[in-house]
Design a protein around this nucleic acid. Structure first.
Length: 193
DNA sequence: TCCCCGATTAACT
DNA sequence: GTTAATCGGGGAG
């Protein structure tokens, strides 16, 4: 029995993260639609020192504490935006960072947004992905998927054997936990093991 | 109020 | 492999 997307986003982030691989994300930008396939995710939860939700609910992280199926967008390093799909029930602060994706449609729009012609360099990192999809501020944070300019679709199945897990990227706390998931051999994963 | 540093990226050596 | 760019969140005082 395959869980629906609605069921998946209500799961704990650790279970939802691998199940979000292969899903399609569409963003309706002013220039037109942009579509990608999720190929890399990371799980963050409330008891995880590396998670923004670890220190409790704040104005910035409030969306993480809402029910699954929303967006959490944050700004970091003074220049980059990244976004999560919020998971779990209301009252629990967790989410899945979408780290990388494979461009499917709207390539010219993404090239313009990123300022490069190199397709493999459009969406192979969380900051790059957000920029390619035209997410350049936090106004989408807290918005509901499929009821805003971002749509999550079933996409294509990923074989269990093609899902690799390992340590997350760019964190110091809990760096040993294998809470990063990605599609084996996919060219658009941000970093190889 | 001040201060440190980050779920990153690109441009260096 | 190293580091500058650049800003806001949130803990400390």
């Amino acid at each position: 029995m395959k869980p629906s997307l609605d069921q998946i986003v209500r799961l704990p982030s650790l279970r939802a993260a691998p199940l979000l691989l292969g899903r399609y994300l569409t963003r309706i930008t002013p220039a037109g639609p942009v579509k990608v396939k999720i190929v890399e995710t990371e799980a963050y939860h409330q008891d995880d020192p590396a998670s923004h939700s670890f220190r409790g609910l704040t104005p910035r992280t409030a969306p993480m504490f809402q029910s699954g199926g929303r967006l959490y967008v944050y700004f970091t390093y003074g220049m980059h935006h990244c976004f999560n799909i919020v998971t779990g029930p209301a009252g629990v602060g967790e989410g899945v960072l979408i780290r990388a994706a494979q461009p499917l449609a709207g390539l010219e729009i993404m090239k313009a947004n990123r300022g490069t012609q190199d397709v493999r360099n459009l969406t192979n990192g969380p900051g790059k992905l957000a920029q390619a999809m035209g997410i350049t501020d936090t106004s989408l944070s807290g918005k509901i998927l499929n009821k805003s300019s971002i749509l999550l679709e079933v996409g294509e199945p990923v074989r269990q054997a093609d899902i690799i897990s390992g340590p997350r990227v760019g964190i110091r706390q809990a760096a040993d936990q294998p809470w990063r998931f990605y599609i084996k051999h996919n060219q658009y994963v941000s970093k190889n093991p």
